[in-house]
């Protein structure tokens, strides 16, 4: 039985590490930041789960299981947030290769939004220094 469990642990750990390796390969081979974010968020979530499952069996203690669940849940909660933040800023800068996209439905919306007048306090156009110099005598009259 122990032997069987040890083999199971080994398989789980190796598979988990393989998932992290695949994430690394993805970071190297994908064309731009946005596709790389897929490699960074997906395989390692499964990799973590496999490694944690392996650990839980290896340590043979029920008390470690809640701690591992918390660690995995934190991973589930934070990975999408970081992917969103990096992707959002990456899309708005040069790091997204737009030519690899088949279609882009956000682009149109962003253009509309930036063309619309801003809400909130509208900045007052300040006259340039040259205009002020010309305008000053006129005001005195």
């Amino acid at each position: 039985m122990d032997m069987f469990l040890d083999i199971l642990v080994a398989v789980l750990l190796v598979l988990g590490c393989l998932m992290s390796l695949i994430a690394g390969i993805g970071l190297l081979t994908f064309p731009d930041l946005l596709t790389r974010m897929h490699a960074a968020t997906k395989p390692q979530v499964l990799g973590f789960l496999l490694i944690f499952a392996g650990l839980a069996i290896h340590l043979r203690s029920w008390l470690i299981v809640p701690a591992l669940i918390v660690a995995w849940a934190m991973q589930l909660l934070t990975a999408p947030v970081s992917a969103h933040m990096i992707g959002r800023s990456g899309y708005r800068t040069k790091h997204a290769k737009k030519e690899t996209l088949f279609s882009d439905e956000l682009h149109q919306v962003l253009d509309e939004v930036s063309a619309a007048p801003a809400t909130g306090p509208i900045p007052v156009a300040k006259p340039s220094r040259a205009e002020r110099r010309q305008g000053a005598p006129g005001e005195a009259d």
Binding site: I22, L34, L46, Y91, S103, E105
Partner: peptide, 26 residues
């Protein structure tokens, strides 16, 4: 789905690499 996603991304990373096409959809 998490397992399917990992296999999918793994396949894309190894087989497609630079030729991966994607889309931004609403």
């Amino acid at each position: 789905q998490v397992i399917a996603a990992s296999v999918h991304v793994a396949w894309l990373a190894i087989a497609r690499g630079k030729n991966t096409h994607s889309a931004v959809i609403a």
